[in-house]
């Protein structure tokens, strides 16, 4: 997959040198093996750091908020396009100034699963053969079956990149993810069928782990309010309600997570970043997917669904 990385660097070099964009947002290797971090290039000579491979997990679209009004190119995967569109709509970003670089992705791999296998050795991705990746570890070439190492969210890959502007760029590379036909709501349905008592115990257990670091909020492209109800209110006469204390207290952990799920309900692009960044591995996508599932059953589904109504809505009990 060196070709893809090369193509990306060439593109970034050209865009930056010709001044078409002021900033190119992509990925580079992090300080730990198998970990990729976001990379910001403003000068052509910085493009050497860019990479693209199946370990490029982060969703970069939220960084666009830091560079509002500037001409930015950003590397995205197909699964991040819904969150990009939502961010664009929520914050009224100037679409003309943003250049999407859609990277061909044949499915991401879960670093945690790879870590066990390769215990921190650097990997070099060679090729994508549809059902498997060919990688080089040291001197050896190995084949990784996607089925085994795939990142969870890729099981429900959208497989389409629509609504691009003519200026947007699709990087060409032969890559494919066979349709896996996994029910995206399988986890939700499973939990729904458990007795209420068991569900309660499950959520008690996972929420007890929460340290309220708010990483899930910080990373979420749908959480882009200037003022957030979880932050202490600004001092002064316009002081609003203090919704939440700083105490590590289960009732407020519940309140935080349920409120957040409701705030992004109908706007969530299901990029799964909340779950990825959670340091205590709370299955947050379960909440989000549950709401997505319920909202889909409402009459007249459209974005921003909770800000509208239909006379045919179901009746609460």
């Amino acid at each position: 997959m060196r070709g893809l990385t090369e193509a990306l660097r060439e593109l970034a070099y050209r865009l930056l040198r010709e001044g078409e964009v002021e900033l190119f947002l992509g990925y580079s290797w992090g300080t730990l093996p198998l970990v990729v971090r976001p990379c910001f290039a403003t000068r052509p000579e910085q493009v050497e750091a860019f990479i693209f491979n199946p370990l490029c997990l982060p969703n970069l679209v939220k960084y666009l908020l830091r560079f509002e009004g500037r001409r930015v190119a950003v590397v995205v995967k197909k699964c991040e396009l819904p969150s990009f569109r939502q961010l664009l709509a929520d914050r009224n970003l100037e679409r003309k100034k943003i250049r999407l670089v859609v990277a061909p992705c044949g499915g991401l791999l879960d670093p945690a699963k790879l870590q066990k296998e390769f215990s921190g050795q650097p990997l070099e991705f060679i090729a994508d053969r549809g059902k498997e990746y060919v990688v080089r570890v040291g001197e050896e070439e190995k084949v990784l079956a996607k089925q085994l190492y795939l990142y969870p969210r890729c099981f429900s890959c959208p497989q389409k990149d629509e609504d691009l502007e003519p200026e947007d760029i699709r990087l060409e590379f032969s890559t494919s993810l066979p349709s896996l036909e996994v029910d995206p709501y399988a986890g939700v349905s499973y939990l729904e069928e458990r007795p209420a008592e068991e569900r309660r115990e499950f959520w008690d257990r996972v929420f007890k782990r929460c340290i309220r670091c708010y990483a899930c909020r910080e990373v979420c492209p749908a959480c882009s309010c200037h003022e957030c109800c979880f932050d202490p209110p600004l001092p002064g006469w316009q002081r609003t309600v203090d919704w939440m204390s700083k105490a590590h207290w289960l009732p407020e952990i519940y309140q935080y997570h349920l409120t957040r799920a409701l705030h992004v309900a109908g706007r969530c692009g299901e990029c799964g970043e909340c779950e990825r960044v959670c340091p205590v591995k709370i299955p947050l996508m379960l909440l989000v997917k549950k709401l997505a599932k319920e909202i889909q059953s409402l009459p007249g589904v459209e974005p921003g669904i909770l800000a509208s109504y239909s006379p045919d809505d179901p009746e609460p009990h």
Binding site: W203, L262, Y309
Partner: peptide, 21 residues
Amino acid sequence: YYARRRLWVLQRLLEFVGMEP
């Protein structure tokens, strides 16, 4: 009407985390 939709969604969520309806 707005309230009905919102509170219906909230009810679904509360039931999902194990609250009695």
